[in-house]
Each structure stands twice: as C-alpha cells, then as structure tokens.
Design a protein around this nucleic acid. Structure first.
Lengths: 241, 241
DNA sequence: CGTGCAGTTGAACGGGGTCAAGTGGCGTGG
DNA sequence: CCACGCCACTTGACCCCGTTCAACTGCACG
C-alpha cells in the first residue's frame, strides 16, 4: 500500500466530524478515547459490509470511500466519503448495517465502537448533542440528495455533484477548483442515477465548453459560475405552490 | 374542524415513535413530560415552516401530513406522516429547519421542545438511545427512498409506495389492504418524482388489471402479491391484452 | 349556472437509456 | 521489447419511458 500521506488527502483530526467525540472533555478526566483502533483498508475492500452487525461507526482519516445500498434493484451510491467524514451511523437504530462502505482508494479509518461513543455521550451532554447533530446533518444531506435525484436534469446533477465536492474539499482547506476525482464514471452514475455513458457525455460537454479540465481522475474547474448557472436554469417537473 | 376521532385514524400513544420519551421511566420519578402541548393544525396549514428556528420536534397524533423540501427546483415530498410518526428531527444539527411539514388532513400534534427531549435523554440512557434510533431509522428510510428514485420505473415506484403505506398502516393495527389515500396525485408525484399524469395512469392501469380498487381518496388492494411481483420483476412490464 | 381544481386520458416529443463500436492506458507474458 | 487482453472511458445511432401539451370529465363552491 502506498504511503497515504503522499497523496495529499490526509486531514488533521481537527477537520474530522468525529472530533467532538475524540476531543470530548471527559477524556481529559480519564475516560477512554472512543477510537478503538485505526485500520488500513485497501482500495476495493470494505470498511464494513451490508448486513453486518452494528458494532462500530467509522471516521475516514485518509483516502476515499463510498457508501452504497443495494435492495435488489442494483446498487445506489448514497454518498462519497472524504477524509474527515463518518460512516456507519445508520445503524444506531437496528442491529444490522443497511448499507456498505467501500474503499475507493487505499484508506485509513478510525474504528469507533458504538458502545464507546454512547458511553462518552452519557457523561458529556455536549458529546451526546454532537452525536445527534451528526445524524441530523446526514439526514438533511440525504433529503437534499433526494431533491437532486427527483428534480434535476443530467447536466444539473453533474454540476451539483462537482460543486458539492468543491465545497467539501474547500471546507477541508484544499483547493475548491482543483481536486482529485478518484471514483469511476460508473460510481458517479450510481450516485446520480445516470448511466456511465451519460456521465461521460455531460463531462465531455462541460469540458468542450471550457468550463472544466479533466486530467486523469482529477478536475480543474475553470468556470465555476457557469456550473452554478446550469443549476439555476429552469426546473423540469411541475412548478411548486 | 371535524371531530378527529371520527376519522378512525387516531392511534393510541403506544404506537407512537415518541412513546419511549413520553413513557420514559424518569418521568415517573418526577421529570416533566416532554410534551409541551398538543396543537390542532387545519388541513393546508403547516406544522412548522422551512427556515423556522429549531425549537421543537413534533409527533403526529391524528391526521395526515407531508414533509417536503424546496431548494429552488420545485418541492419534493420527502415522506408522508401517519399518526404516530415524528417530524422535525432534521434540525438537531443546525439552527433552522431545512424542510417543512404540511397538514394534508386536519391534524393533532404533540409539540415536544428539543430541550425537553434532550433533558430526558440526559437522565435516561434508554431515552437517549431511543432518540438516536429515531434519527438513525429516518436516515435509513431516507436512503431507501433514494433507491426508489434512482433505480425504479414508474410502476415500481407506485407499487412500492402502496406497499409501504400498507405496511405502515398494518403496523398501527389497521387493515393492510384497505386504507385512506388522503394526498392528491400531485403530492404522490412529488414524492415519487413523477408527474400527476403518470401517477394517474399507473394507478388506472393497476386498477384495470384488477389489482386495486380506488374509491375517492382510498385504496383497496385486491392482489397484493401482484404489486410485489412488479417490484421484483427486473424486465419491463408487459401490457395486459 | 360559471369558474376552478383534481383527476383521467390521448397524442406526440425528447432526454436519457440501450446497444455497439472505438480508443487508450496498463499489466502480463512471450 | 512488443503483443495481447482487459477495463475504464468515450462517442455515435437508435429507441423507449415518462414528460409535455391538450382536451375532457366530475365534483365543489360562489
């Protein structure tokens, strides 16, 4: 496995959504760290499998991963994980994971057993609240993604996808206009409910218009305003209200 | 406003997802009930508006409502609320509600201020866990809905919609084959990412095949197995006669 | 009555899926 | 070293499902 630090994707723990847990004040008072261990996961391997017992949540420290669900109609990529993102939160409800997380790149993850997270929450109201916030934020994201699938055209979906990646990278202190795009066209299609062909065509089109440059599994956004314009153009389905 | 009990949709609090909070053992020990008050909301009114401050979560005691998001591309109905369902959970993260809840029927809701829910959670681990479960379950539901939008054909979406309503009504002790369908075709379309015309056509088709009977804003499912077949059939539907 | 909205149904269009062929990078083995 | 196969991606041609546009029905309410 290559040296992960070389890839330039490693983030400080400060940018991690799980930092309220790791930095919980009760730890200073002797409570154990929520992180049981760090695991390396090679590209193509799973962080956890669908149907596996809910035991832990995961924080991605380095690398790139995707969370997908498969209910028998083909797999749908629910979200992509950047360093600092959490996965496996869905399983606080039942006993089993309803989705799986797959490493796209070689990854390094912090394994946080659920009982440890809950233990911290019991002794620190702030930590408990942080855990709820995390769930709540993912719920809002998920509902927002439904809007993408429900109401946007193919070019709008791709534009929104790129703009969201741009925002997420810049939140982590990286360039909002030039970043890696390590997932394949197929995975992008499974995320946006498009075929690989359509994803490819739209990206080619954006590139032909001079809005993007697409080196191998990278993006360089040249005209971010044009991408935003695509999003604000006329909706397709019925107008509301 | 009509007598809600007459509608036959009122549920015992035992079937409510919020009952772990209302029935929390710490209340027996003198803690206050999480329910601040009960409110009546007339059909067409909002339980809460998008962008309003996060103050409370809501449990639907009677009636029928829908949760929708509008990000400027037209509104998408994220889910329909049956008696016993909760709404407003999305806002545990930020300060504002990202979606709105609209009463389809005349409704009665329990208003549960967030601080009261959190207070109960602080003194009862079981209650805190119940709150997490609720969020977690809605997240799983939301991801599952994304699969509906991403990978199913129009007849499959409608079939799944009906089967899910059937399951939810039967969980509440009502008939799984005969229930009210109080939302309009437009709202169903906004939920499933279809036009009203398509929803209407698919329902008419199901009815023509003898799988359903559709009195005014009701459904009577006659061949529930056929609806399940539609969902499991990978190949395209063949037309009858 | 007229006006309005919800629902149904028909006809035609088009965005994106499907199928198919072609390209280029990369690993493997001769 | 090149030959070969593999796979991700691209591009073109065609087609189908669901949208769009439009007409019509029925019920509610002034």
């Amino acid at each position: 496995m290559a040296n992960l630090a070389d890839r330039g994707n490693q983030v400080a723990c400060a940018a991690c959504v799980m930092s309220p847990l790791c930095k919980s004040p009760v730890i200073a008072n002797g409570a154990p760290s929520p992180v049981e261990c760090r695991r390396r996961v090679a590209a193509g391997e799973r962080l956890y499998a669908a149907g596996s017992a809910r035991e832990s949540v995961y924080a991605l420290r380095a690398g790139f991963a995707q969370v997908s669900v498969d209910e028998g109609h083909g797999s749908h990529v629910v979200r992509f994980l950047l360093p600092g993102d959490a996965a496996g939160l869905d399983a606080f409800a039942g006993g089993k994971h309803g989705n799986e997380a797959l490493a796209i790149d070689d990854c390094e993850v912090c394994v946080i057993p659920a009982y440890r997270a809950e233990l911290l929450g019991r002794y620190s109201e702030a930590t408990c609240t942080a855990l709820r916030s995390l769930l709540s934020a993912q719920l809002a994201d998920s509902e927002s993604h439904a809007v993408t699938l429900a109401r946007l055209t193919a070019p709008q979906r791709v534009a929104r996808f790129l703009l969201e990646l741009s925002r997420r990278w810049s939140e982590r202190g990286f360039s909002p206009t030039h970043f890696r795009l390590p997932m394949g066209r197929r995975a992008i299609g499974q995320h946006l409910a498009l075929t690989t062909e359509t994803v490819s065509r739209v990206l080619s089109d954006f590139q032909a218009r001079g809005w993007l440059d697409l080196p191998w599994r990278e993006v360089r956004i040249l005209e971010i305003g044009k991408l935003r314009d695509v999003l604000t153009a006329t909706p397709v389905l019925e107008k509301s209200h």
